[in-house]
Design a binder for these strands. Structure first.
Lengths: 125, 125
DNA sequence: AATCAATCTTACGTTAACGTAAAGGTTTGA
DNA sequence: TCAAACCTTTACGTTAACGTAAGATTGATT
């Protein structure tokens, strides 16, 4: 399929796809005479994975450093170990983010409770 | 205290403080003849709250819409009800963020497991 | 009085992640 | 064959959240 089709399926613009290509996140499977970019289903999967990671506040740069982990079929022993390392680092980051968000959540609930009590007290005045 | 002192205490630059002021997030308690900005302890608390919210991926714009809730001492009955509304909306946002992060966390763990198994299998070849 | 550090405003620069317009090539269907 | 629809590259524009430099004031110290 061409770039427009892929863009539609992935809910992004062609510009975005070309931009990702410039960052080495994604490449067309074929590109001959005409200069048109042609993609397969794998490209769609990659694009979706990218958007998914973006949604989790990963920068395109960070995504670039891990996207291969999800799609490279094989690598050597040491490569795999390194991938595990990176993934564990990411796990730690995510855990910390979850923690602080949960703490923030408690704060919000506390604030709401305070406000509600205040409203109760004020109600009859 | 002056802007430099406040900046040091809050671990930001004076430029950042002035920028926040331009966004109405924070104002000096005093500012007469000289043109110098003078702040009290409340400013430090506000700044820290701002940095805290930033850490949770809130934009300065979003922060502007909630910061008052934490520092405005009183308001009328309807005002309080509105504040509660806003806080509940925020709670929802935060909950959703936590959810997606937890989902992502599971995926990472899954990936790590996959990789480790792969390593196991490859180890003796 | 002189000097030096801190502050002031103004304004251009920077990074990320694209948007958008211009000017032109390609493919496809009538 | 020729026009519509899609594609190409090039390049300037945009938002957020400041950084940074310039030139002028102000406050504090000697």
């Amino acid at each position: 399929m061409q770039i427009g089709q892929l863009a539609k399926l992935a809910q992004v613009t062609p510009r975005t796809i070309r931009y990702y290509e410039s960052l080495d996140l994604l490449h067309p499977s074929e590109r001959e005479g005409s200069g048109f970019r042609y993609y397969g289903q794998d490209a769609l999967a990659r694009l979706k994975k990218i958007e998914y990671l973006k949604n989790l506040n990963f920068s395109l740069d960070e995504i670039g450093s891990v996207i291969e982990l999800y799609f490279s079929e094989s690598s050597n022993y040491l490569g795999k170990l390194k991938i595990i390392e990176i993934l564990q680092a990411h796990l730690k980051e995510v855990d910390e983010k979850i923690d602080s968000l949960q703490q923030f959540r408690s704060e919000i609930i506390l604030q709401i409770a305070k406000m509600q009590q205040w409203v109760e007290e004020t109600r009859n005045s």
